[in-house]
């Protein structure tokens, strides 16, 4: 009797923790990432599986409103221009709750992408399930994924480079370095970095 009570309690707590929005423990380099099916700014649903010719992906959790995301917009566009043809396209995902941050609504994403001429998909993680599964905590937050058969292996997690304010002064371009190493068939030497950024605006649990 006692046992069933506790197991019921445990299951209940598990359910609550699964339902609650918020950052999950997330991935570490070497983990396998899940694919997703999210709405792109063109209104079509998109998954990574559908991009068959890619060798991997530069997944960027970003948004419209965050000044750090805005600082990095041109650099994200440049990453896509440089690496799409080499097999590592950018896939941007906005995970923010639009009631917490109205500037991050789907409609505003469409407007921002047009203004900046985004050359890559800009997806809306409305349920926040993908940001939570990845363990994204801030914007911008990058995950470089490598395709290995049907798996997506997480190769790099972190910042784009080491200078948010000034691209020219950046000494370490972490994402470029990771993708270059992957393209050369090498192991990624720096798989994880931290950076200041805006918190992801989670829905109230």
């Amino acid at each position: 009797m006692k046992k069933t009570f506790f197991s019921a309690l445990f299951t209940g707590l598990m359910m609550i923790s699964l339902m609650a929005a918020g950052p999950g423990p997330g991935y570490k380099p070497g983990d396998k990432a899940i694919d997703f099916n999210l709405k792109n700014i063109d209104g079509q649903m998109m998954s990574l599986k559908s991009m068959e010719s890619a060798k991997g992906f530069i997944v960027v959790f970003t948004c419209n409103h965050c000044p750090f995301s805005v600082k990095y917009e041109d650099r994200i566009i440049a990453l896509d221009k440089k690496y799409k043809s080499m097999g590592y396209p950018v896939v941007a995902i906005n995970p923010n709750d639009k009631t917490k941050e109205p500037d991050d609504s789907f409609d505003k994403m469409v407007v921002r992408a047009k203004e900046k001429g985004f050359s890559f998909p800009y997806l809306y993680d409305e349920s926040q399930a993908i940001a939570s599964a990845f363990g994204a905590s801030r914007t911008p937050h990058v995950y470089v994924l490598r395709k290995a058969g049907s798996d997506l292996v997480v190769e790099y997690i972190g910042a784009i480079d080491d200078n948010a304010n000034d691209a020219v002064s950046a000494k370490n371009k972490y994402v470029e370095q990771a993708v270059d190493e992957l393209l050369a068939g090498k192991k990624v030497s720096m798989g994880f970095t931290k950076a200041i950024g805006c918190t992801i605006k989670w829905k109230d649990a």
Binding site: D162, N163, A164, T193, K194, I196
Partner: peptide, 9 residues
């Protein structure tokens, strides 16, 4: 300190 990764930890 703009190189965040060097000091956050």
């Amino acid at each position: 300190e703009p190189d965040y990764n060097s000091w956050i930890d």
